[in-house]
């Protein structure tokens, strides 16, 4: 469904943040994008949804297509209308607007009939029953978990076929992270594909089908989620799991890492 090929992105003609990345999100799949700070995860999402411009960045090479049609070069509003919505890192709600108004803002670009929009709205409230009670509350007064739910709900209001989530678990309590994970699984079950950017690899890989590991703008690993969970590099660097007998192996991995990075 989404196909990124040999993508290169640079900021202000100077810093190349993405160096030839290819990735694919198949129809209805959940794909995780892992990596440390500055690896280029958010830049990837910005490139897909046409938000590079306001960050003074641009695609210098490669292509992005959705359903076989090129979408690089379209503006953000057109991309939302094609069926891709992004939930930005840090929720980015309209804090002075009510929960209801935030949700309605998510439907501003939607092309569907009012009946379809009604359905999207009902579905969002079904996924997040909590938002129904707090409809008239200002979004800024919600707790972190509630804000994340509202941000996801707002993204779903345009009835996207692909939802991009940027660090949905950031700053949330473990129990809330679990709930967000379950909600992602539910969105997935409803037929919406998800591209999930996460620092919490544990959470991401527990819900994803496949995953990509990004390091300084390059894909260093692309495997199924199950394989990634077994991968020692991932276990050490992204899951923080290092069993006693593997301690020595990790030492060698550490030495390997720079080479991988500059390969």
């Amino acid at each position: 469904m989404l196909l990124v090929q040999d993508l290169e992105v640079s900021y202000g003609n100077a810093v190349t943040a993405i160096r030839g990345v290819s990735l694919e999100v198949p129809d209805g799949a959940v794909v995780a994008l892992l990596g440390a700070n500055g690896a280029g995860k958010s830049t990837m999402l910005r490139a897909i949804t046409g938000l590079l411009g306001i960050h003074n960045a641009r695609i210098t090479c490669g292509s992005i297509s959705f359903d076989g049609r090129r979408i690089d070069g379209l503006n953000a509003a057109q991309i939302v209308r094609r069926g891709i919505s992004q939930v930005l890192e840090g929720r980015r709600l309209f804090a002075d607007l009510t929960v209801e108004e935030n949700l309605r803002s998510g439907a501003l670009a939607a092309r569907g009939s009012s009946a379809e929009q009604r359905r999207a709205y009902d579905r969002v409230l079904e996924l997040f029953p909590l938002l129904r009670e707090r409809r008239d509350t200002h979004a800024g007064y919600l707790s972190g978990g509630e804000q994340q739910m509202l941000a996801m709900g707002r993204g779903l209001m345009a009835s996207p076929r692909l939802l991009l989530l940027d660090e949905p678990s950031l700053g949330l309590a473990p129990l809330m992270v679990q709930r967000i994970r379950d909600i992602i699984a539910e969105i997935h079950a409803g037929g919406t594909a998800v591209l999930l950017v996460e620092q919490s690899a544990q959470m991401a890989l527990s819900v994803a089908d496949t995953g990509y590991v990004l390091e300084t703008g390059r894909v260093v690993l692309a495997q199924s989620a199950a394989e990634l969970l077994r991968n020692e590099l991932v276990r050490h660097f992204y899951l923080g799991l290092t069993e006693g007998e593997q301690a020595s192996k990790v030492a060698t991995l550490r030495q390997h890492r720079p080479q991988r990075r500059w390969a």
Partner: peptide, 18 residues
């Protein structure tokens, strides 16, 4: 609504397709 949303957070407004 689009105008108020854009005034509050331009990038978020772009992201929802305004």
């Amino acid at each position: 609504l689009a105008m108020r949303a854009t005034a509050l957070d331009q990038e978020a407004a772009l992201a929802v397709g305004i």
